[in-house]
Design a protein around this nucleic acid. Structure first.
Lengths: 335, 335
DNA sequence: CTGAAAGCGCTTACAG
DNA sequence: CTGAAAGCGCTTACAG
């Protein structure tokens, strides 16, 4: 196989301890031996075995990311993929390697894998069952949750302030003069969709607008296809208001394509807005007004916070909430 | 920390060897002791330390994925993200865990990390410099390349048949009656963009059409923004032909948005087609005609092949080429 | 400043 | 069928 510390020691004419010392920089070494060791390391392209190191140091410098996927593959997901990207780069900057796993059955299989590999900590993304979380919790391993579904203040969570986001959306459409609205909202078991919808509705009602029951479509998923379908279903049900709010961008884009097929122009005939501000919202025709969610920051904060936990520092607050922001594009322009 | 094999042995009143045997299923164990051991494993939620196992077995059951990213974050990328997704699920089915790393500088840093962690094998995605590849090669670790840029038949590669794809695109547009074309093509150092463009042009010329120099835009990246910009630049340069071929979907979508801003209708006024068949090509307005590339199969084949290499089996052929397919959508419909 | 020894948590022959 | 011993490749006190 590859060279070991013993090979280096022999070749440099010193002991393993000495080699270990120059690599780690702990303890004293004479300049001369130090140089000799460094040279032979170079020469042999020696790579210390991280497994052996981890065995004795009880630290792998690996972290695990578990992402729940149901319908959507996850890495390529415009929302979760972004979070993952930023986890990857942040982790790298802190010298962690990251195991990525996507979990379909919400079983503990992924968790078991990670546990056996002795990761230093775990990042859980999206929907994971209470059982799995409790299971992980029982192992006393540092972990936290990003954009989770479970309200649990035992668990460190990083989330978007979806209530505020819903309000921002409501105020934007209201200001454009709309008083009646159609809603396409994702699975209500998912905290985000639920909060976005509820706070949008509440704010609209506060302002004096209203939302009729027949103008709400509860989508079984948060995907494009169901945004498309949802619009069709509502369309056949009744004459639609001139503003549509979807609780995420993919649903909104689905609605827009459906409207386009019907010959309804956006924004001239109807305004549409989404939520998340995924990359594609800027690329669509027309570009989609949305509520920006700081996906990169979610990933960044997750790693930084996990690193603290791993180092035994206490983390406060337990609940990290990020601020959403309105991004106006042409899909809601007053024409 | 967590329990060790010794804890289990003590509690069950047997030796470590015995515990090891029942876990691995190697060697004989009486039904009685077997049950006793299994029970205490259950009871203590014992998780064998994969590091220790790997130390002795010289197999980590981990593989590494290195993705080059320059402009685009990579996990969320509509093309590479899909490959990654399928790597993740395939690896899981073969009981591999996967380290994912994105490499910006094309340095050997990621490779070094993976090497130190003693991954069983490596999957390299996209553009990686010859030096890095040679470097990895020198360590005798099983590895292969997906959608690579380098033509090197020493290296096992999984690629799309881009020449055929380019031809399919040419034939489709030609059949619709077009004889002149605009091209937006990505970085020519990238094998895919180069081949797609060249074979498209060749096929068009064979058929009797032609492509003028001023109707070709060489884009510095393969991103949406540059598709948008490319269209603008050509637009100002001269009157454009009524069919546009972009060497990937993102460039095509950029062009479509630009046309939309100018009031040019697709496909009524102008036909546009892309390449890759990323998810968003089906979601755009209008839906985009494209050449489908089997991204999922790339990831799948990569893992299956790597697994063979890891097991010491020989792999033939060295160059795995996937067949592209034309997907017609409304952006090129004859109206 | 340097080396020998013990130990991290497993598996694998080897005896019995 | 079961246990004691050696070893995987490191690090960490402990002597010297």
């Amino acid at each position: 196989m590859s060279y070991t510390i013993k090979d280096i020691a022999n070749r440099a004419g010193v002991s393993k301890s000495t080699v270990s010392r120059v690599i780690s920089g702990n303890g004293y070494t004479s300049l001369e031996t130090r140089q000799k060791v460094l040279d032979t390391i170079q020469e042999l392209h020696y790579k210390p075995n991280a497994l052996a190191r981890a065995m004795v140091s009880q630290r792998t410098h690996n972290i695990g990311v578990i992402i729940y996927r149901q319908h959507h593959p996850i890495a390529s997901h415009p929302f979760y993929g972004k979070i993952l990207d930023s986890i990857l780069t942040t982790a790298e900057s802190l010298d962690y390697s990251v195991f990525v796993t996507t979990d379909k059955e919400m079983s503990s299989r992924s968790a078991d894998f990670m546990l056996e590999k002795r990761v230093d900590g775990l990042i859980l993304i999206s929907r994971l069952s209470k059982e799995v979380i409790d299971y992980i919790h029982s192992f006393q391993i540092p972990y936290l949750m990003v954009n989770g579904t479970v309200e649990d203040d035992q668990v460190i969570q990083i989330v978007n302030n979806d209530e505020k986001g819903g309000r921002l959306a409501a105020e934007h459409l209201f200001q454009l003069g709309h008083r009646q609205f159609s809603i396409i909202t994702g699975p209500q078991e998912h905290r985000s969709h639920y909060l976005r919808f509820q706070s949008f509705r509440r704010r609209i009602e506060e302002l004096g607008g209203n939302i009729l029951k027949e103008h709400v479509y509860f989508s079984p998923t948060s995907r494009f296809e169901d945004g498309f379908k949802g619009l069709n279903i509502m369309w056949e049900r009744s004459r639609l208001p001139l503003a549509i709010f979807a609780t995420n961008d993919m649903l909104a884009l689905g609605a827009i394509q459906s409207l386009w097929e019907k010959g309804v122009r956006v924004p001239e005939d109807m305004a549409v807005m989404g939520f998340d501000n995924v990359e594609y919202s800027a690329m669509s025709v027309p570009p989609l007004t949305s509520i920006h969610v700081e996906k990169e920051k979610m990933g960044y904060d997750a790693v930084i916070t996990l690193d603290r936990l791993i180092k035994g520092e206490t983390v406060n607050p337990v609940w990290i909430e990020l601020e959403p922001k309105l991004v106006v594009r042409k899909s809601t322009l007053r024409v």
